[in-house]
Design a protein around this nucleic acid. Structure first.
Lengths: 226, 226
DNA sequence: CGGAATCCTCTTCGATACTG
DNA sequence: CAGTATCGAAGAGGATTCCG
């Protein structure tokens, strides 16, 4: 069993780092920000982690109530790990770190899109201060990557795949997508052909406002690929 | 030499964690948020770190341009470590983590005030969104702890000890101080006797607005004590 | 096949001792 | 004061095995 603690009870930062400061922990949170995952999915997405560590980290995080274990209903009958409310409170910290770290990476364009990574990029580009009164469900389609986003009460929830009744479905090519994330797409018509909307155009216009930070994420959280 | 990297170039979070995710690193940033420190001061404030690790972390952080090494002018002729602009960009992440971690700590009142810890608590209680048009220098005095804060262009800078010409000097007892940090002191007169202002009362009123978050830091970042 | 525990090697940490 | 050098202990990573 582990216990390399900073032993500074009373200090919030030291306590937070006792829980989250170990290797892999925040990457697990990153993975779950886009939606629940099974043990094996985590294992394959976090290439290099080693099964014992993953098990140990999940146990610690569950104990700290950062995530929960849930059994899926019968058809799937499997266990998924999911962020709790406490875990979701880490979202702005994780995206903040990701955005900060971005200044060290030189953008050699990735090879293939990973849906969850792109959905995470959406989190990084999200501007809560602009989402105050927005209540929309969007579907995004970038090449083969289909994902959705719900903006509700100033918060963002994302998921992979399509969603039943989106207010607007926004289809983009790769270049327009990264431009959107950087906040460089201000107008539905501005880009010739790179962007196509189905559904409520006003909602799509709100999406352009709510996503896209000036200095933010260009290419996304590339997770393991091999 | 070390290199246990996540090896996910292209992912901002993984890159950030390669730099900051090792043990002690963010606590070093925390210490420097309140102002420059010498090697030995860091060593004594981060009880448990071990001198080789501190040296190694400082080297890495300097290389990543998170902090800088500066020689003090002749009288002191000593080296201090100081956050760079990049390092200061981590402030909101560090205070966010500290605030998040706070929910796990039960507030058994600390024994003795540490000025730097209280100044750090001020960072945690700072609300940038309310500081947009504020441009003030305050001095705070809580028991034996004297510190100052400059709010300028939406950002906060703190330091220990007195400051030449503060707009307002605010003296508080310990209880009122923690209440202030929690955002529970709304009025200069509200607390009988716990608070005393010298200088510009309007500035002091702004201070009450700019510091103090609802769910925020109660007792501060207690650093090592032994 | 999903969800781990075990074993073994290698890296990192922490403490102490030592140096310019 | 500001570090470097050294060394035992704890933690990480990889492979293999086990359980349901």
């Amino acid at each position: 069993m582990s216990k390399r603690s900073y032993d500074q009870p009373g200090c919030g930062l030291a306590t937070a780092l006792d829980l989250l400061g170990q290797r892999w922990t925040l990457l697990i949170v990153r993975e779950l920000m886009v939606g629940p995952l099974r043990y094996t999915d985590l294992l394959s997405r976090l290439s290099g982690i080693g099964t014992n560590l993953l098990a140990s980290r999940l146990r610690q995080l569950e104990q700290a109530a950062v995530l929960g274990r849930h059994e899926l209903p019968p058809p799937a009958a499997s266990v998924v790990y999911e962020l709790t409310e406490r875990g979701r409170q880490l979202e702005s910290i994780v995206t903040g770190l990701a955005t900060w770290g971005r200044q060290y990476v030189d953008d050699a364009a990735g090879v293939e899109l990973d849906v969850r990574s792109e959905a995470f990029a959406l989190h990084c580009a999200f501007r809560p201060e602009r989402a105050r009164y927005v209540d929309d469900v969007y579907q995004f389609e970038v090449e083969s990557a289909v994902m959705h986003a719900r903006v509700h009460e100033g918060r963002l929830e994302t998921g992979v795949g399509p969603v039943p009744y989106p207010k607007a479905t926004i289809r983009l090519d790769r270049h327009t997508w990264t431009a959107l994330l950087r906040g460089e797409v201000e107008d539905l018509a501005a880009r010739g052909g790179g962007l196509d909307v189905e559904g409520d155009r006003a909602a799509a216009r709100r999406a352009l406002r709510v996503f896209g930070r000036p200095g933010a994420v260009k290419s996304p959280g590339t997770t393991a690929s091999r």
